[in-house]
């Protein structure tokens, strides 16, 4: 079963949208680039949220809490990217859930 982006790509080609939008065809490469951009945004957003969450929950150690959060985030962001991009079907969903949880952890301090 094709993933959401390939489905959109196929739909795009079937609908002859290329007459309206000046692309010859929506190749899998476009969908991959789009997916990559979304993965990057989600991974970075999750990382930033993790830093904020750690800083909030360990505010007693002051600026060092941010440093600890950054150490974690720099390790996790590349892993998130691989999950989001490499996991064919549920990668983006997983990344979305991780990001949402991290945002919640930020808010529920």
């Amino acid at each position: 079963m094709p993933d959401i982006f390939t489905s959109v790509a196929l739909h795009y080609n079937n609908m002859r949208m290329s007459r309206i939008i000046p692309f010859k065809a929506w190749s899998p490469a476009y969908s991959r680039v789009l997916r990559l951009v979304i993965c990057m945004s989600l991974a970075w957003g999750s990382g930033a949220a993790i830093v904020q969450a750690v800083a909030l929950h360990f505010s007693s150690i002051g600026e060092n809490a941010y440093v600890a959060g950054q150490i974690m985030a720099c390790l996790l962001i590349p892993i998130f990217m691989i999950i989001g991009f490499g996991w064919h079907r549920y990668g983006l969903l997983a990344l979305g859930i991780i990001g949402t949880l991290a945002m919640l952890a930020c808010q529920l301090g």
């Binding site: 970075w44 990382g47 830093v51 904020q52 800083a55 002051g62 809490a65 941010y66 950054q70």
Partner: peptide, 8 residues
């Protein structure tokens, strides 16, 4: 890291 992530 502080250049791209939240900084305290």
């Amino acid at each position: 890291a502080a250049a791209v992530l939240p900084d305290g």
